[in-house]
Simulated scan of single mutants.
Amino acid sequence: MLINRNLIVLDLDAKCKTEVIKKMINLAYKEARIISKEDFLKCVLEREEEISTGVGNGIAIPHGKSETVKEALIVFAKLKNGIDWESMDSERVDLIFLLGVPERNKENLHLKILAQLSRKLMDEDFVRLLRNATTEEEVYYILRSIEAS
């Protein structure tokens, strides 16, 4: 499974995207999905410097492909207050999907996950359900449909 209930955080309080990413990486580390928080953070921030992962509609998809990732993952966060993510549409971001895949993956898994997630995020009902969810359990069941698509 790409996601589990322990990789979901609601009402995350953060002031900037680096703080958000660090908090999300901590969840991945606690779940033993990554070996090094520092190495994965560096990888994700390097990708962020290339071009913002703020995709619009209040959504960001920071991601990284790294040797420190033991198992492909999605960490989901819904922010207490939206923050500037330098998104394409200049809107503040409140829904974040942190993706991680092992460097050794030859199947372009990160592209497959991004494609599946992007398709779901074009569905207004899917996004509305996420925004209205109030428990990690609700979010978990909504996000499980990503892997099924």
Rank of each mutant, 00 (worst) to 15 (best):
R5L: 13
N132E: 14
V9K: 12
L12E: 05
E103R: 11
I35M: 09
N132G: 00
K42Q: 11
G56T: 04
L99H: 08
I8A: 00
I96G: 06
I21K: 10
A72R: 10
L109F: 02
L99G: 07
E86M: 10
L95Y: 07
I83W: 10
M122T: 04
K23D: 10
K65R: 14
M24F: 09
E91M: 14
G56V: 04
A148R: 14
K22E: 15
I61A: 03
L2W: 03
L73W: 01
V139W: 02
K65V: 06
E137N: 12
A77Q: 02
A133K: 01
F97I: 11
I3H: 06
K15N: 15
K23S: 13
R119N: 08
L10S: 01
E136M: 00
W85Q: 05
N81Y: 15
E38D: 14
M1W: 04
D84V: 14
E86S: 13
L73Y: 11
L73H: 05
G58W: 07
M1S: 15
F126K: 03
P102M: 06
I21N: 08
G56I: 02
R119F: 06
R104H: 07
I61G: 04
E50C: 06
L95C: 06
N108D: 13
P62A: 05
K106S: 13
A60Y: 04
Y140E: 14
N6P: 01
L99Y: 06
H63W: 01
T53D: 10
K112S: 08
L99K: 07
A14P: 13
D13Q: 13
I34C: 08
R128I: 00
R33N: 10
A133I: 01
N108E: 10
A115F: 02
V93T: 15
A60R: 05
L143R: 09
L121Q: 03
K17M: 12
C16K: 15
A133M: 00
I21H: 11
K78V: 02
S90P: 03
I35N: 11
L10Y: 02
Y140G: 05
K37C: 12
A14G: 13
T18Y: 12
E124R: 10
N132H: 01
R5A: 04
L10H: 00
E31Q: 14
L109M: 11
K17R: 15
K78Q: 09
Y140F: 15
G56A: 02
L95D: 08
R104M: 05
E107Q: 09
I59R: 02
N81F: 13
L143Y: 09
P62I: 05
T18H: 12
I34T: 08
G54H: 06
N132M: 06
G82R: 10
V20F: 11
E46N: 15
